[in-house]
Design a protein around this nucleic acid. Structure first.
Lengths: 218, 218
DNA sequence: GGTATATCGATAAAAATATATCGATATGCG
DNA sequence: CGCATATCGATATATTTTTATCGATATACC
């Protein structure tokens, strides 16, 4: 019998979502080079169960020592490795509106291993108006650039009405993962990874939690 | 014995996160006024289990009819009501950088029941440079405006280093729910609702899913 | 009007996730 | 150097979440 799968058993989606939180917390702490930090400390700072923290960390790092905890710098390294923050990857944005330009101009992506190389827009008038030294191209150049640079990740920041056609175009140009900021449902083949960022909906959920909190505390 | 809680048993976080997806999908469909739509249809369009769709919808809406499904317009109404899209609520942004201004200028929040009334910044030079008719104030005016308008929701779009102090300031001015775009961990009292939007981390997770997908399909 | 069928809603089973328990071990203190 | 303690890692339990099963019912067709 051949083995069914060779993958090292990926962590679950839930765990994956927590790893950046640990990492962000660790990085925000003033830790000296060889400092140690325990799961207990992390858990209480983040309001989580300490067992959960241990299990999550065990999935990506090389174990801690009783009584002292984990070597903080090692933990940070392991998390960054696991999440891919060390390998730089190019990405593109389609939709050079305010949000698209904000993403294009944001220089914090580097720490996470991303380099947004360009934005594209259908509007001729904003094309080439380079912002922060990064180019804005007309959408007609999209396919050529993506193929030549072997871009795998695309970010959609166009109005909802245009999102599906942009999405199809991206897939057509070889893009494999899409982050969508348009507040609409996108249909993609199952081999494409899709992430939806609906900020307004998240705000609504936040407000819902708020009102529940208020009514809950009498 | 008095009843322990009067709340109508809030839906779980997981369900809550899916409701906007249903709503967005329903709204994207060209439905006539008295159209019906079945859980089966929704499920297959969204690649979900149909039982899950039924259970989720049952939590917020008044039931469908066998053989035909749910009344689409009623479903949309119920979802919007439940998520609060009908009650308008004011919110503020602190951090008038590119992202903050993009949020301030975005007019799609109205549909979700949000009205961003102003942005604040510590930098005097960008103050008052009204964008899209919405004001940008100096941070010194924050407390006064929030208290007078009884603002409950604040959005943080400042650099990570300043995020915690902005967060503290918000809480101090009566804000009860915070959406944080700074890539850092914020410490808040437990009566405050916090939502973290780490776009870069989400991109990293998306890439991770992508590579798993690639290695998975041999 | 009777019968077939798509769909609902409820109940039950399964899977995933989170939490608790406990022995083992490294450190610090007497 | 022995003992107390904080923490780890593993195993077990509990809880939540998802998925499957099945009888009931409204519509369509004959």
């Amino acid at each position: 019998m051949g083995r069914e799968s060779v993958e090292p058993k990926g962590v679950s989606q839930a765990v994956l979502g927590r790893l950046p939180v640990y990492l962000s917390y660790l990085k925000s702490q003033p830790l000296h080079f060889d400092a140690s930090i325990s799961a207990t400390t992390i858990a209480s700072a983040l309001n989580m169960g300490e067992v959960q923290v241990r299990k999550d960390l065990a999935a990506v790092s090389g174990g801690g020592k009783p009584k002292v905890g984990y070597a903080a710098s090692e933990l940070i390294n392991d998390l960054e490795d696991f999440l891919g923050y060390r390998n730089s990857e190019d990405a593109v944005v389609v939709g050079a509106g305010k949000l698209g330009l904000a993403l294009l101009g944001y220089n914090g992506f580097i720490e996470y291993g991303f380099n947004i190389v360009a934005a594209f827009d259908a509007n001729e008038s904003i094309v080439s108006k380079s912002s922060d030294e990064k180019p804005i191209f007309h959408i007609s150049k999209f396919d050529d650039l993506c193929r030549r640079m072997r871009i795998r990740i695309g970010i959609i920041t166009v109005p909802a009405a245009a999102a599906q056609s942009v999405c199809d175009m991206m897939i057509n140009s070889g893009i494999l993962a899409i982050m969508n900021f348009a507040p609409t449902h996108l249909r993609v083949p199952e081999n494409i990874a899709l992430n939806n960022q609906n900020i307004a909906a998240d705000l609504a959920i936040l407000r819902k939690r708020l009102t529940e909190k208020i009514s809950g505390e009498k």
